[in-house]
Design a protein around this nucleic acid. Structure first.
Lengths: 344, 344
DNA sequence: CTGAAAGCGCTTACAG
DNA sequence: CTGAAAGCGCTTACAG
């Protein structure tokens, strides 16, 4: 049953039914009620595809994507982009168009965000790396009623916002359980934060807090040390690390970012043994050591799917009014040598 | 650019373009080549949604689903069904209709399969529980050129077939790694097969073989015993089990089906300690013991997604000719207390 | 062998 | 306040 059937039952024209369906002005209370009653009775729902077929010819849905430029250390960002590309392929027939804006730092982020707000996009996907700038963008988007989805990281912002990302605190707890299973109560634990030029990332902090919470919740207390290591400088062994390296018992190492692959090399060089490593992200370097069993577990954030889901979710909201796809807790996927997922 | 634009460029009518696009007869070689050339040059692709809009009004796409009836022990089968329902909701606007056929045993499977073949469905989703009957159905479907997807289990059949399921052999290897990490080289390992009235399931065999292969590939040899336990009889402790129960060292227990929740109860009753358990499926009973930390890991087969993907894949094949979605290796998801996925 | 028309379910711009 | 017509991209049945 379509709009035509409703119109017939209600003794009105299809134009009037359309007006009622979209709450457009110019319908008398009386006919509106009559039409609504029949819509309810018949359980009519609008055919999104027919709707888009018509609307796409009039005006495309434009989505702006504002994410980090993918290069050198930031190779990771190729993955959400692939997911975005996949979504575009599926949605282009429905009149969806995506423009990519790539930022390098907080300044380029701010400028591109402003540009996006000025041109009128129907929706925005971005990443909340810079708290202040993200808040500004969110406010502006809210004012213009442009739906906005943040991927990758959750941040407390000044207004409610949509997030498609993994719960990093929970992921830290998962990592703790995995490491604890291997290392036990007699071991020593090390949280390794690799700092890049932007300092420590919100995700990493949340992962560490989750890691520590896992142990706090249990009776047995184990020593957990945090090592902050700047990736910008040449690697040097500090006094703290020496003590760690010399401990002969089981050592559990939790690397809070995607660089866990750096540790096996260091451990080899300094003859550190009896280590178990849990890290994040299924990248080439990490996989290499996972396959060699130098890294025990990796946690996968499904970056490709995050990008895909953001675009699809925004489309579902714009075309069907479905708000539920705008907030997704990406599952915490545990990866071992035998269940490496396809990434590319 | 649509069919209309192509027609204009080729100086033909849109009817002729349509004929070329679908390889329909009644087009001269000459015009066909002319049209094909322009299609290629412009990179034209058909708009699936516009196509379905028209076709759905003429004839629905009918998909038959032949799966086990979900009741008592077979509660599991509610989950694929939920995924199927989700897919139907998404596709009904595009003129897709699904009929469910629920079998109880090989006999009802056979009868319903024949019924499906007689009525003319456009596609079939089923489960290869019964080797002989599955082969018969596959042959008949092939003869009538009806695409068929098997979910849940892979079986070697007489012709190539489509499977959406988890690689059970690999899943067994993953289970072995998880258990080995907890139990180590000094422990004893037990593979528990719970047999129901249908005997042992292909999935369970494959899981066991994967489990054993993991250890075979490594240097250290550990004792692995297989316990076949019939779920139909009252539980009794055999001599074999007594020895197992009395071993005081670390014990790794791999349950090859969804019933791992039965073990913690038995272990409690017979004072069996120092056990680690890995099982399959995120059901209520298993979750209860996962949360109590009596079960250490569960492997999730994403049954809901299997059902969803089967319907979507068949639609993509029928509507767009995309064959790639008909064969899917469901990721081997490792579940611990802290990353329990949503199932319902 | 080819074209013109009708229509899928929806939306809009125009007429009244 | 309401209706009739045109058209999105595609497919089919009919006419020639």
């Amino acid at each position: 049953m379509g709009i035509k059937g409703i119109a017939k039952l209600a003794n009105v024209s299809i134009g009037t039914v359309d007006r009622v369906l979209h709450n457009r002005p110019g319908v008398s209370k009386e006919t509106e009620e009559k039409v609504l009653k029949i819509i309810k009775e018949t359980g009519y729902t609008r055919n999104t595809y027919a709707s888009r077929l018509k609307l796409a010819s009039l005006r495309k849905l434009k989505i702006a994507v504002l994410i980090p430029e993918a290069k050198h250390n930031w190779n990771y960002w190729k993955l959400p982009k692939k997911g975005i590309t996949k979504a575009i392929n599926e949605l282009s027939e429905l009149g969806v168009v995506v423009d990519n804006f790539l930022f390098i730092d907080s300044n380029t982020f701010k400028n591109l965000a402003n540009k996006i707000i000025e041109e009128d996009y129907d929706a925005i996907v971005t990443v909340p790396f810079f708290e202040k700038e993200s808040n500004v963008l969110l406010q502006k988007a809210n004012l213009k009623e442009i739906p906005l989805v943040f991927i990758d990281t959750k941040l407390e912002l000044e207004s409610p916002a949509n997030f498609i990302r993994q719960d990093s605190h929970k992921a830290g707890m998962v990592a703790a359980r995995l490491l604890h299973g291997l290392v036990g109560n007699e071991g020593q634990y090390f949280v390794v934060n690799m700092l890049n030029d932007r300092g420590i990332h919100a995700n990493n902090k949340q992962r560490e807090s989750g890691f520590r919470e896992y142990f706090k919740k249990r009776k047995t207390e184990v020593p957990i040390k945090t090592i902050n290591y700047s990736m910008n400088n040449e690697f040097t062994v500090t006094q703290e690390m020496k003590e760690w390296f010399n401990f002969k018992g089981p050592k559990g190492v939790f690397v809070t970012n995607s660089k866990s692959h750096l540790l096996p090399e260091i451990f080899d060089k300094y003859d550190v043994t009896n280590t178990s490593i849990v890290g994040f992200d299924v990248n080439k370097s990490n996989l290499k050591y996972l396959k060699k069993e130098k890294i025990n577990f990796l946690i996968h954030q499904q970056p490709r799917y995050q990008g895909y889901a953001a675009i699809k979710g925004l489309f579902n909201f714009l075309a069907k009014g479905e708000k539920s796809d705008l907030n997704i807790d990406i599952p915490i996927e545990i990866v071992v040598k035998e269940n490496v997922p396809e990434i590319g």
